[in-house]
Simulated scan of single mutants.
Amino acid sequence: MYDTWDVNKRITEAKRLTERLVDHAHYLLDIRENNAIVVYSDQLSKQIPRSYAANAFNVFREAMHQIEMVRLCALWDQAHIDKEAIMTVVELVDDDKVIEALAENARAQYISLPEPIGGQKIDDATLELLKAVNKKRGEEHAANAVVGLRKAIADARAIKSSEGLKSIKNLRDKHVAHYLTQSNAERSGDIIAPMKVGGEKPILEGSLTIIELLYSWVNGVGISFAESRKIDKKCADELWSSCKFEIADRSKLPSKTLSLK
């Protein structure tokens, strides 16, 4: 798809798209931490007795879970220049010349020498030592870039073809994004296993690792989602721990009262 693009154009577009992937991942983690409480804990559900409110809560909880699936699947759309998806970046960087150029960018970060402290001149012996140290660090950084990029590419292709992702996408296609009797995959003869409860977790975790690797070696900036996840969790906890339901238990009311509702 990008065979006619030169290396610089591929890298420039990969950088832009990887920035967007980071933004999308942050929003997905916001949803995830809310769902950890709403969907995967009884913090709210235990407050809601048998009632009409329980039905509304079930709808809300299912919708929250479904939007997480939709956003997760969007990260794994087919590679296309108009799609801010992991595989689009993978196709842009999965080229020996592109990887070589990105490795050179990583190496170049160690070319410059530190400024002398207090304006003092660095003697020749110290200067040569600093050059040797920087050269070694540059080579190590370049090697790490190649390893990191290769790992991101291999991991992305593995997730793209995984049964777990296929199950999530099949659920999305048939019951969330569209009302299909059969998904395209099923019409092609694939046997797709139903999505298991919590089946999105390994796909999400793998996605985050890949985006971290791409951002580090394509954009040249280290990133970790760990700290932002802590903030997301704190925000979700502060909201939902303050949310208290006081709902009449309809199972304890006379049937005549129930019939009026």
Rank of each mutant, 00 (worst) to 15 (best):
A54W: 11
G198N: 07
G164H: 09
K46E: 10
Y179G: 06
V147Y: 13
K256R: 11
D30F: 10
K252A: 11
K233I: 01
P114D: 03
V197D: 13
L260S: 10
A14Q: 11
G119E: 06
G138D: 14
L102H: 07
V221A: 09
L127R: 15
E84Y: 12
H65V: 00
V93Y: 02
E19Q: 07
I81W: 05
D155T: 07
E205P: 01
A101I: 03
Y179M: 10
V90Y: 02
I247K: 10
F245Q: 03
D77M: 12
L17Y: 07
R157V: 01
K234L: 12
E140Y: 02
G138M: 14
R157A: 02
V7S: 03
K136E: 14
L214W: 00
R107C: 00
C73M: 04
S241H: 06
I111Y: 13
N144G: 13
N35K: 05
K131Y: 02
L102F: 03
Y40S: 07
I11D: 06
E91R: 12
L239A: 01
K136S: 13
D123M: 11
Q109C: 00
K261Q: 12
I48V: 13
T88K: 07
H141Y: 11
K121A: 13
P254A: 08
A156D: 01
S207N: 03
T88W: 07
V59P: 00
A156K: 04
R20F: 00
N184A: 14
K83M: 07
L165C: 07
D3W: 03
K121C: 00
K256E: 14
G198H: 05
Y110L: 08
L171N: 03
G189V: 10
A193F: 04
I99M: 09
A79H: 08
K131C: 04
A177F: 06
D94I: 05
L213A: 12
D3L: 10
H80L: 01
G148H: 09
Q43C: 00
D3M: 05
A63I: 08
N8Q: 15
T257V: 15
E68A: 05
L253E: 13
I99H: 02
D30M: 13
R172M: 09
S188A: 15
R107T: 00
I86G: 10
Y179P: 00
A14F: 11
K252G: 00
L75M: 14
K9Y: 08
A156Y: 01
E68C: 01
D23E: 14
G189E: 10
K201F: 14
E163M: 05
A101F: 03
I111F: 12
K135F: 05
N144M: 13
L204A: 08
D30R: 14
V93Q: 01
P194D: 05
A177E: 06
Q120T: 08
L180W: 08
W5E: 02
P49H: 08
A248D: 08
V22G: 01
D173V: 07
L258Y: 07
L29S: 05
S167G: 08
D82C: 06
Q43G: 01
A54E: 15
Y2M: 04
T257I: 14
L72Y: 04
R16Q: 10
K234N: 07
I191P: 00
M1S: 12
E100K: 15
D42C: 01
I117W: 02
A103G: 15
A152Q: 08
E91T: 01
